[in-house]
Simulated assay, not measured.
Amino acid sequence: MTSYPAAPVPPTPAKPVRPGTLAAALGAAVVAGLLAVVDGIVMLVGASDIALDIAAKALAQVTGQPVEEAKAGLNAEPGLLDDVVGTLHTRAYVLVVFGAALVLFGLLMRGAAVWARVLVTLSALPAVGMALRVVTDDGTGLLRGLAGAALAVGVVAIVLAWLPANGRYAKEVKASKAIQAS
């Protein structure tokens, strides 16, 4: 009797090495999503004050009066800024919802699956678009700064998600799982 097996045992495949570009894409997606969420929350909390500041600055430019007098005049008119506050709330909800989705799908992108990268892209595009709108519109320095950072990091996340190394890694992971299953 021999100690050799009847059939050769196939070698176990090496575990695929996660590329640095995938880790960078995951980090960028999470950071961009968190920046968008924080920007949206700040906008929600301070929408009435932000609307008053924006309207007072615009009124002061048109009439030539000081900003404080314009604020006092706007405060005397109840309901005058409701449309502006509603617009700010809508922008904030878009940032919060798509920012949270970007965080979630960024964390699910660990295996570099195509569906996860597509969902990261689809949730980053509205967040980046709204961040661009906030950056180019009137608002506080904090809102514009957070939106600018979310915009830049969101674009980086989209680009990093689709680098070829991530696609190769996804194929290696899929092949490794198929070999293990058989």
Rank of each mutant, 00 (worst) to 15 (best):
M1Y: 03
T2D: 10
S3C: 07
Y4S: 05
P5D: 05
P5H: 09
A7C: 08
V9W: 13
V9Q: 15
P10E: 15
P10T: 10
P13C: 07
A14N: 13
P16K: 05
V17S: 13
R18L: 11
P19Q: 13
G20M: 08
G20Q: 10
A23P: 05
A23V: 09
G27F: 08
A28D: 10
A29E: 02
V30N: 02
A32I: 11
G33T: 14
L34G: 01
A36P: 04
I41W: 10
M43N: 05
L44D: 10
G46F: 07
A47E: 01
S48E: 04
I50G: 00
I50F: 12
A51C: 14
L52M: 13
L52P: 02
D53M: 00
D53I: 00
A60L: 08
V62M: 15
G64M: 01
G64L: 00
G64S: 03
P66H: 11
E68A: 09
E68L: 04
E69S: 01
E69V: 08
A70I: 07
A70K: 03
A72Y: 07
A72C: 08
A72L: 09
N75E: 13
L80C: 11
L81I: 11
L81N: 01
D83V: 05
V84D: 04
G86Q: 12
T90F: 12
Y93R: 10
V94P: 00
V94M: 08
L95D: 01
V97T: 12
G99A: 09
A100D: 14
A101Q: 07
A101H: 02
L102N: 01
L102S: 02
V103Y: 01
L107H: 06
L107R: 04
G111T: 11
V114Y: 12
W115M: 12
W115Q: 12
W115I: 15
R117A: 03
T121R: 05
G129A: 13
A131D: 01
L132H: 09
V135A: 03
V135Q: 01
D138A: 15
G139P: 01
T140I: 08
T140R: 01
G141R: 12
L142D: 01
L142R: 02
L142W: 04
L142P: 04
L143K: 04
R144Q: 11
R144N: 09
A147K: 06
A147S: 14
A149C: 12
A149K: 03
A152M: 11
V153M: 10
V155P: 01
A157M: 09
V159W: 13
V159Q: 12
W162R: 04
L163Q: 14
N166I: 05
G167H: 05
R168G: 15
A170V: 14
K171P: 03
K171S: 10
K171T: 06
E172L: 15
E172C: 06
K174N: 08
A175I: 07
A175V: 06
A178G: 06
A178H: 09
